[in-house]
Write a protein that binds this DNA or RNA. Structure first.
Lengths: 355, 355
DNA sequence: CAAATATTTGTAATCGGTTACTTATGTGCA
DNA sequence: TGCACATAAGTAACCGATTACAAATATTTG
């Protein structure tokens, strides 16, 4: 069924020229007679000829493809990142080879690393021009040694940009968000709203994102002498665990006045738990979180959260990768990313707030 | 910086054998002396050699890559689909080349089609082994002619599977959901709950998903002689339009008793609008929708919705594509998909319901 | 033990483009 | 007119694997 496609040799025959001439027309190079150029172009257009990227890659050593390794594409944060990266890459003429390792949430760590290392191997053999890594094992404060070996090997062969909190002295190219600042900002906001007893829920222990956000929360709470170890409930990044943590808090019969959730999904689960017990957010307990997922403006209550400017983050990541591939063609422009913005909405209980 | 990688020629030299022998070891073929095989394998392992997929593709004419063209990866329905497709493809040894055309939501139709046609061209030149199309222009009841031309051309060159409602007599390979049945089910459920005045909100006009769901709703409403043209509010698939439609309904001062929303996001927006006006769902107005997005169990109220078994849908799509590529290796098994399941939760107002 | 057969290994063509190099043709200037 | 130089077009090597085929070696069999 699959109809045979044309090759440059056939086009050349049709036009009565050599393959090199066709190639020159195809790549809009000089040194081709205008009349001949037009004729060849016409045949090219008429036949809908698509030069084989495979053959091209053979000799040019460039595939115009980026590899993306993402740990959980179903997490809205990563979904946004992937879609923005895809757009930026497309603008620069690159396609995306996607590897979703789905390693977030309760897998054995050994499984996680093998799935990710496997992805690295596929990327090496596919000869992508660069790799973007979004989360996964690298998010761990203390990543697996085999994983780091594999990552180093990968980075030796091709440009790699990692969207995660930098791993000290690792020598990799990181693009990071202000995780700690996000947490201090949100905690300070809750304090400013008049709450002193503030809990922290969600986030996987051992993950840098969690560590840094927790550190930010802790720092502020300690400054105001109101930190309590037993107000911290780590788990993961999903709504279910927000629900579970809040349920636990409620059953303890010692409700805090406010809660910092690791992200909007966890906040959603927490609110759901409150409602199930006849409690109201923000009246009985205020909630604020991070990550500004697209739908959280429509939750009831609307969730006070932090916008990390993920679109910009994606653009910077792609810009860095392009620069690593071709510094003259893609000079590094401004790589600064705005500090996270506080989006004050209803859930933190400030009077008269909405969207 | 990028360190040069090894080639088969160098491996062959190191092992003191010919390239064909190395190739045979690499591909676990017969006719190689066990001792020699082991020696070569050792060198292969030690050097971490990754054969060039590009060179391999040149001669084998297979890239072990699928192209995926998705119209809006930020829509949770498509995100789920992509992640499941990725998993199924990976199991069969295929990688995914991702094209997000982001054509959902308010673009000029001419732009939509050019972006998608552009993606088709990229896929042809990248020589993928098969293409999956998820939504986009094909979702239109009357797709653009240029688009259909391009799609036909693509399908002539390589296997294509489309996840969308079948376009009559188009000859393409479709994988579809029971859209109409979903709508009749959800409408009947609301009627069974005792509501007669039921509105329909969300969905883009001219899109088959919308048309079929609307037709299902209408059919049931007409059966019970309760259909009203002015109870239909089409728009798109996002929370904002659910919010807008519901706001309009409220301002009309003639509230229906229940609402069918095109999906959970639209339902979320609608509920938000109700709350803003001091109205309660399900007390003042019941809502039910389709698509069972991951977080909708945690909304307040939990949303009654329809599960379309999207995981299965993704698996079927990949199975069909694999079969189109190699019928003997991947015989078509059972391709049936369960009819959509009704998930009765709080928002439709049935007493004593929760999760 | 020779002939027939099976196994192992190597040689070289091939996939479809790009590009360095060569040759042919055209133009400018003294 | 002659020489330098720019432009046009073609030839063939090359990228890194696979594979058809041939050659060499080992094994079986009468």
């Amino acid at each position: 069924m699959p109809k045979k496609e044309l090759t440059i040799v056939e086009i050349a025959k049709m036009a009565g020229v050599s393959t090199s001439t066709v190639s020159r027309v195809l790549n809009k190079q000089d040194h081709v007679n205008p009349a001949k150029r037009q004729k060849v172009q016409e045949i090219l257009d008429r036949s809908g000829f698509q030069p084989s990227a495979t053959a091209r890659a053979m000799v040019s050593k460039r595939t115009n493809t980026f590899g993306v390794v993402v740990s959980d594409i179903n997490n809205p944060y990563f979904t946004t990142l992937v879609s923005q990266i895809e757009a930026a890459a497309k603008d620069a003429g690159y396609s995306l080879l996607l590897f979703n390792t789905q390693t977030a949430g309760g897998l054995q760590q050994s499984t996680i690393t093998t799935v990710e290392i496997e992805a690295f191997h596929r990327l090496e053999e596919k000869k992508v021009d660069g790799v973007l890594i979004l989360g996964g094992e690298i998010d761990r404060a203390d990543p697996d040694a085999d994983y780091l070996d594999a990552l180093h090997q990968l980075a030796q062969h091709l440009p790699v940009v990692i969207v995660a909190q930098p791993l000290k002295d690792s020598g990799f190219n990181f693009v990071a968000r202000y995780q700690k600042l996000a947490a201090t900002t949100i905690t300070q906001h809750l304090l400013a709203c008049g709450y002193h007893d503030i809990a922290f829920i969600g986030g996987e222990p051992g993950i840098t994102i969690t560590n840094e956000r927790l550190a930010g929360y802790r720092e502020i709470m300690e400054t105001y002498r109101t930190f309590r170890e037993d107000r911290v409930f780590l788990s993961d990044y999903y709504a279910q665990s927000g629900f579970d943590s809040m349920t636990e808090l409620i059953n303890q019969n010692d409700l805090p006045k406010a809660v910092v959730a690791i992200n909007d999904q966890v906040a959603l689960g927490a609110i759901r738990a409150l409602n199930d017990h006849g409690l109201n957010c923000p009246k009985d307990i205020a909630i604020a979180s991070c990550d500004a997922f697209p739908n959280s403006t429509f939750f009831t209550p609307r969730i006070t959260t932090i916008d990390h400017h993920n679109t910009r983050l994606a653009q910077i990541a792609v810009a860095k990768l392009l620069n690593a591939i071709s510094p003259k063609r893609y000079p590094l422009g401004d790589l600064s990313i705005e500090p996270p913005s506080l989006l004050i909405r209803e859930s933190s209980g400030l009077k008269g707030t909405k969207s």
